[in-house]
Each structure stands twice: as C-alpha cells, then as structure tokens.
Computed example of a mutant assay.
Amino acid sequence: MVRRLTGSFRTTIDTTYPALDTPPDLLEGFKQCHEDFKMRGMYDDGAHNAAWDKIGFEDRYLTHLTEAADAQEAVAELTNRLRDGERLVFVCFENTDQKRCHRTLLKEHITEQL
C-alpha cells in the first residue's frame, strides 16, 4: 500500500487505500513541525521523531482509524483479507528504521483487530 503509485511501484503494487493515509491536516502539521525542528539544527531523523511527538501523531492517526468511516471500512477489508489467508505488504517511503511511520501504527491496529 502506498499513497500514490509512482515509479517502480506502478508495476508492483496492486491496491491502494487512500482512506488509510495520514489525514491532510495531520500530515501538513507534521511536515511544518518537522521543518521547524530542522531549521533549528536537528538532523532529519531526529526532527521527524520530535515532530511526531510534539503534534501527537500516534494518537491522532489512531483516532482517524477508529473514527473515520472510510478508514474503518478499509481496516475491516484488510482484516478480512488477512483472515482469508492473504499476505499483505505495506510499503513505506521512510528511508531509515529510525523514523516512525504511520504504516507501523496501521499494522499494529489491524493486528489488534484479528
């Protein structure tokens, strides 16, 4: 799953779930906060994680998954696919293991549903 099919992903990704993207207001707030931390001299990974904490990214994204009707439907569909024995792969653009990622939260949330 990716937000947009670009480059080589066009030939390897079969399904996208836009309802599971980071909500635009949360994403924009995160990006701005991330840039603010970088302007203060933090390295990229540190600024990323500091912004994540400062804006309460985890709680806000999990609220999106549990309260937005389209996100609830998408989670139910993925959960059913897993119950039917399908293997799913979530694709992430984060370039290091040090950065937090909403797909990790999504995976944990879906696992709890199983």
Rank of each mutant, 00 (worst) to 15 (best):
M1G: 10
R3I: 00
R3P: 01
R3T: 01
R4A: 12
R4T: 15
T6Q: 12
T6R: 11
G7I: 13
S8W: 09
T11P: 00
T12Y: 05
T12N: 09
T12H: 07
I13V: 15
I13F: 08
D14G: 04
D14S: 14
A19V: 06
A19G: 14
A19Q: 07
L20N: 10
L20P: 08
L20M: 10
D21Y: 14
T22W: 03
P23Q: 05
P23F: 01
P24W: 01
P24C: 01
D25I: 13
L27V: 01
E28K: 14
E28W: 08
E28C: 02
F30C: 07
F30L: 11
F30K: 10
K31P: 01
K31T: 05
Q32W: 01
H34E: 15
F37W: 11
K38L: 10
K38A: 09
M39K: 14
R40H: 15
G41F: 11
G41R: 07
G41Q: 09
M42R: 09
Y43N: 13
D45A: 13
G46F: 12
G46I: 09
G46M: 15
A47H: 12
A47S: 14
H48L: 09
H48T: 08
H48G: 05
N49C: 10
A50C: 05
A50D: 04
A51M: 05
W52Y: 03
W52K: 02
W52C: 00
K54D: 03
I55C: 01
I55R: 11
G56P: 06
G56L: 11
E58M: 07
D59A: 15
D59R: 10
R60P: 00
R60T: 07
Y61E: 01
H64C: 02
L65C: 00
L65V: 03
L65T: 06
T66Y: 02
E67C: 05
A69V: 10
A69E: 15
Q72N: 04
E73S: 13
E73T: 14
A74Q: 08
A74M: 07
A74N: 05
V75S: 09
A76W: 03
E77N: 10
L78S: 01
T79N: 15
T79V: 14
N80E: 13
N80M: 00
R81Y: 04
R81A: 15
L82H: 07
G85L: 05
G85Q: 08
G85V: 11
L88N: 04
L88S: 02
L88E: 06
V89R: 13
V89H: 05
F90C: 03
F90N: 03
V91R: 07
V91C: 13
V91Y: 15
V91H: 12
V91Q: 08
C92P: 02
F93P: 11
F93T: 14
F93Q: 07
F93I: 01
F93W: 11
E94H: 04
E94P: 02
E94A: 00
N95C: 06
N95K: 13
T96C: 06
T96G: 05
D97H: 12
D97Y: 07
D97N: 07
D97G: 09
D97T: 10
Q98V: 05
K99D: 05
R100M: 12
R100A: 08
C101T: 00
C101Y: 04
T104A: 15
L105A: 02
L106E: 04
K107Y: 03
K107E: 14
K107P: 01
E108A: 11
H109M: 00
H109V: 03
H109T: 00
T111G: 02
T111S: 08
T111L: 10
E112Q: 12
Q113R: 13
L114S: 06
